[in-house]
């Protein structure tokens, strides 16, 4: 039971993590985020001569900022779901361990009682 539960927990973890990694999460970007990222990027950009170059730099910066924000959001999301999984798994393992110890102890005592008889 104990070994089986360990294997189950590992399989479940693999499946959940796999589902998380390979499921398509659509990238949704709000208008506010675009405006903030573009204005930030313009403020930080020093290029003044070539308009094309400025546009390219602004786009690069804006995309970089949006990607960084999405990374941050996903970090929060993964942390939360990992913690949920960890808490329930640890509790289930604790119960399984306790059950095994009790079963062994009861069997030992039963054997002891039968030996006396």
């Amino acid at each position: 039971m104990h070994k089986g539960l360990w294997i189950t927990v590992l399989i479940v973890f693999g499946l959940v993590f796999g589902l998380f990694l390979f499921s398509q999460i659509p990238v949704a970007i709000t208008q506010d985020e675009v405006s903030i990222a573009v204005s930030d990027a313009i403020a930080e950009t020093n290029a003044q001569v070539d308009e094309m170059e400025v546009e390219q730099l602004v786009t690069q910066k804006a995309v970089g900022k949006l990607e960084a924000r999405q990374k941050k959001r996903l970090k929060f999301l993964v942390s939360a779901y990992f913690i949920i999984w960890l808490i329930f798994s640890l509790y289930a393992l604790h119960l399984a361990k306790m059950q095994n110890q009790l079963r062994k102890r009861i069997e030992q005592l039963h054997d002891g009682l039968q030996g006396k008889e």
Binding site: F20, Q24, L74, F76
Partner: peptide, 30 residues
């Protein structure tokens, strides 16, 4: 498993908190 599938693939993305809002489903249910 069905719940995790629904949370990540079926439920629409909330436009203020985006992906982080998906914590809501298991937080409130807990």
């Amino acid at each position: 498993f069905v719940a995790i599938y629904c949370v990540f693939s079926f439920a629409e993305i909330e436009m203020t908190m985006l992906e982080v809002q998906k914590i809501f489903y298991f937080h409130i249910s807990s």
